[in-house]
Design a protein around this nucleic acid. Structure first.
Length: 299
DNA sequence: CTCGATCCCTGGACGC
DNA sequence: TGCGTCCAGGGATCGA
């Protein structure tokens, strides 16, 4: 499941393998996860992939202005633009020799000027692809919060401690921080010894500091390990990541905590499985509002 | 505005 | 073996 480290891994791989290549043509299968399929067909051919960046869990393929004049007169849009790609749960974006048979659930083929094809494969189609010209891209990106690797201690603390939502929900909220998903949320909360149901407003300044530090540490180490491969994540070279070997909480229900030996538990928080150590990560005193016995009292 | 619930989708695990 | 059921989860959307 691609989160920040996995997307960073794929983006770096594509930067090496396809930056500088020109897109010659586009072919599409199922398109229900593509914002405007016709725009891809009309706008991509003739453009060069100048570079590939990560933005949160998105990849941004920066595209050159178009040079072919035939299309100019038709569409009038020739300036620099971007292809926004979200891998969702099961998306893969990677180049292949055009002659190589394609995997089931391949939905987009971009023919490149060196004989290869950049293919997008996504069984669940939870991903997203959008062609966006400069202004639209800027507008799209304003909705997202801080990059967890770049955010300052002060900004992190203010973004978290000003919100009453559960800390797990805040870490997953892309308008608070861009790029954190379920695995790295649980891993950083375990390291910071914070229960996933704690409220943002409950965290001390010190706890927010610690959480930011361990989150950055986990993300950096995961990038070095080329991400986590739980079931099906593969990078742009088709290789799985290694960071799943370092998980301390995620997916470890019933197994012993590496710190204290207690059994790791799983609860649903913000609609997602959340793994934590009940001993190291003490629960809030009132995890949920208890149902009152009898009628509510006035005053 | 804030927050939680629901739904989208397919493959894999599991029970019978 | 095969069928049904459940679960995984990022994010859009809706309603309280």
């Amino acid at each position: 499941m691609p989160e920040l480290p996995e997307v960073e891994t794929v983006a770096r791989g594509l930067q090496k393998s396809v930056a500088g290549r020109r897109i010659l043509s586009v072919r599409m299968g199922k398109t229900d996860f593509i914002d405007d399929p016709a725009a891809l067909e009309q706008q991509l051919p003739g453009r060069q992939i100048e570079n590939v960046e990560r933005y949160g869990k998105f990849m941004l393929l920066r595209l050159s202005a178009r040079t072919d004049t035939a299309a100019d007169s038709e569409n009038g849009e020739v300036g620099a633009a971007s292809l926004l790609v979200h891998l969702g749960m099961t998306g893969q974006l990677a180049p292949y020799a055009a002659a190589q048979p394609y995997a089931k659930h391949t939905h987009v083929w971009l023919a490149l000027d060196d004989g290869r094809e950049l293919r997008y494969t996504d069984p669940r189609r939870f991903g997203r692809i959008a062609y966006l010209s400069g202004a639209l891209l800027a507008e799209e990106l304003t909705a997202f919060g801080a990059d967890p690797l770049l955010v300052s201690t002060e900004e992190f603390a203010s973004r978290i401690r000003s919100r009453n939502a559960q800390i797990k929900a805040l870490l997953l909220d892309q308008s608070v921080l861009r790029g954190v998903g379920n695995i790295y949320a649980d891993e950083s909360l375990w390291r910071a010894r914070i229960h996933p149901m704690r409220r943002g407003t409950e965290l001390s300044t010190k706890q927010a500091q610690v959480l930011r530090r361990v989150l950055q540490d986990v993300l950096r180490k995961a990038i070095l390990a080329r991400g986590s491969s739980i079931s099906d994540f593969l990078d742009a070279e088709g290789q799985p990541g290694e960071y799943q070997r370092h998980h301390r909480a995620y997916g470890r229900e019933g197994k012993r905590c590496y710190r204290c030996g207690a059994a790791i538990r799983r609860v649903i928080v913000a609609g997602r499985s959340s793994y934590f150590c009940p001993k190291c990560q003490p629960a809030p005193r009132l995890p949920k509002q208890r149902k009152r016995r009898g009628p509510a009292r006035n005053g």
